[in-house]
């Protein structure tokens, strides 16, 4: 836990100083919301627009997050930081940054698509958090895998999005139902699928990340 806390505190301090990821990802998210709203500013399109925005924002943010760490992985590994611990630290930071984008973009979705995006923010937190964790976990796993690759910016979405498809479908479906006024229990199936995906990928990534960091 101590090492995870150190890694998270270090990453958040670096981000606070540079605003490198939040600025680029926030700007991209804002542009996507505006463009998608210009095409179809209807409540029925809100859930899809939200998750398209989060998926693109996540791929951009996660690529940057590992690019910043690329030259330092040797230092982390020499300090005998366990690969699984490095994974948990990076995934947590990725999720925090994605959650910040989700929270910051809700008012825009509320203004441009449907007021329910704000009125039902409490219920929406469930798919947003669980879906966000899923994206962060898959993105961190593949981000680590391709950190030394030359075309990593292009590779990450190619690798991450197909694997994260169950997350995107379940989260979009749950979000759409909740925006439509359904109670939380009505989307229990989707939420269970998200929980199962998150547990599966956190466990697998935690176990595999030592090998991912190996050359």
């Amino acid at each position: 836990m101590r090492t995870i806390r150190l890694l998270v505190a270090k990453d958040l301090r670096l981000e606070w100083r540079t605003r490198e990821i939040t600025t680029t990802v926030g700007l991209l998210a804002l542009l996507l919301v505006i463009v998608l709203a210009a095409v179809r500013p209807e409540p029925a399109a809100a859930a899809s627009a939200m998750w398209v925005t989060y998926a693109f924002a996540a791929t951009l943010g996660f690529t940057r997050a590992f690019a910043l760490e690329r030259d330092h992985l040797t230092g982390l590994r020499l300090a005998a930081a366990d690969g699984g611990v490095v994974f948990l630290g990076k995934a947590l930071v990725n999720w925090v940054l994605l959650a910040a984008v989700q929270a910051a973009s809700l008012p825009a979705f509320g203004a441009l698509f449907t007021e329910a995006a704000l009125a039902r923010a409490g219920a929406l937190a469930a798919p947003l958090v669980l879906g966000g964790v899923g994206l962060a976990v898959v993105g961190t796993l593949f981000g680590g895998l391709i950190v030394q690759a030359r075309l990593r910016e292009a590779l990450l979405p190619l690798l991450m999005l197909p694997v994260a498809l169950p997350v995107l479908i379940a989260a979009t479906s749950a979000t759409a139902a909740l925006l439509d006024g359904a109670p939380l229990r009505a989307v229990g199936g989707q939420l269970q699928l998200l929980v199962a995906f998150d547990i599966l990928f956190v466990t697998a990534s935690w176990l595999l990340f030592e090998f991912v960091l190996e050359e």
Binding site: R2, T3, L6, R13, T18, D71, G75, A79, A80, A81
Partner: peptide, 22 residues
């Protein structure tokens, strides 16, 4: 090559690595 984090101070870098080593 430097293994230091450019946007951390020298003290923060050393505290971070000391923490990693427990």
């Amino acid at each position: 090559e430097s293994l230091l984090y450019d946007n951390l101070t020298v003290a923060e870098n050393l505290r971070f690595f000391a923490g990693l080593y427990g």
